[in-house]
């Protein structure tokens, strides 16, 4: 258990730096700028929660890290992804294949379809182990059993011969985690890992991820639209809106002192248990069409604080205080209480 102690120590060194990443999709209707200048840092041994609405570009940012943006129609239009001093975007495919699975692993939203239905789960985990760790069949078998045990699958020696359809969704997600962690990656990208699961299983999977993080000391990039999940396991949070990061900071900062109206809107639209409300707040409007973003701040048509300047100038992501950045012209003046008043009386209420 000394492993846990080692990684508990403070280590503020970023293991992965994303600088000004741009991912564009060339479609018949025009260029869709799915990710347009995203800066992120994943700290060693920490969890970064990436939060945003559907279609804001969070999944595409994730896919860009292991170089899996479907191309064509997608292309990396600019930026850098620095891992261990190397820019992953410049690496040839051969070297990326070594990094994938070995250093960077990923689990997906839909555990039902992320395992090959024709192979036993054991075979699929063994394949990865044998490929990356150059282990023999027997050794890979032992390792697989250990991994299955670690992710809490009962009687792994029996279940190793199961086909995916013989398992429940939660079990399959555990298998996916076992597969992703079988080569002890440095970074685990979890693209909405609990969205397809029911609440009790969600909690189990999150606990599992956290305990495995303590054990292996990996960093997690957790993509979700569930702020509860973020509050649960993330140490840093990035809020994404319309292809950009609008707010970034420590989880205490974001939850305690949100500095962007979009973040405020997200918090206000969460039902609070025990607090009776006539109507639940809804951020008005919907995510803008990525082919025709509004000029100026992309959030202004939906923002309760919008002023003339918002319609002209796009605010930059700037520091509010150390380690807490927000992209809003009024980031210092936004007040939670004014906001609450505005939302109570807002005519946008549905």
């Amino acid at each position: 258990m000394d492993v846990i102690m080692k990684h508990k120590s403070e280590n503020e060194e970023p293991i992965l730096k994303i600088k000004d990443l741009k991912v564009y999709f060339d479609t018949d209707d025009g260029v869709v700028k799915s990710v347009d200048g995203v800066d992120l840092q994943i700290m060693k041994g920490k969890t970064l929660g990436l939060v945003g609405e559907s279609g804001c570009g969070k999944s595409v940012s994730c896919l860009a890290i292991p170089g899996l943006v479907p191309s064509p129609p997608g292309r990396i239009a600019g930026g850098e992804i620095i891992y261990k001093g190397r820019n992953l975007l410049d690496l040839p495919e051969k070297e990326m294949e070594v990094i994938r699975g070995n250093d960077i692993s990923m689990i997906f939203q839909e555990p039902m379809t992320s395992l090959n239905p024709l192979f036993t789960i054991g075979d699929q985990i063994k394949e990865t182990i044998m490929l990356h760790q150059k282990k023999g069949k027997a050794e890979a078998h032992e390792l697989t059993l250990q991994m299955l045990g670690k992710v809490g699958i009962p009687s792994p020696a029996v279940r190793i011969n199961d086909y995916p359809h013989q398992m429940s969704g939660g079990m399959k997600q555990r298998v996916m985690i076992a597969m992703a962690l079988s080569c002890t990656p440095e970074i685990l990208i979890a693209d909405e890992p609990t969205t397809a699961l029911d609440v009790t299983i969600q909690a189990q999977i999150l606990d599992l991820m956290q305990s495995l993080q303590d054990e292996f000391g990996m960093s997690i990039l957790l993509v979700t639209h569930d702020l509860g999940v973020v509050a649960n396991i993330a140490t840093d949070v990035a809020i994404m809106y319309a292809s950009r990061i609008v707010e970034y900071g420590k989880v205490e900062d974001i939850f305690g002192n949100p500095r962007h109206p979009y973040t405020l809107g997200l918090f206000t639209s969460i039902p609070v248990i025990g607090k009776r409300k006539e109507n639940l707040y809804v951020i008005p409007g919907s995510v803008p069409n990525p082919l025709a973003f509004p000029a100026g701040c992309k959030f202004w048509p939906r923002c309760l604080f919008a002023q003339e300047i918002c319609k002209v100038n796009e605010p930059l992501l700037e520091e509010v205080k150390e380690g807490h950045k927000a992209a809003c012209h009024f980031k210092t003046s936004i007040d939670k209480y004014v906001w609450n008043e505005k939302t109570e009386t807002s005519s946008f209420l549905i």
Binding site: P66, R100, M106, L115, E127, T128, L131, M176
Partner: peptide, 13 residues
């Protein structure tokens, strides 16, 4: 399908 993406992420050629 996700299992093909998953296989790619695992670095399978």
């Amino acid at each position: 399908q996700d299992f093909v993406s998953a296989a790619k992420v695992m670095g399978i050629p």
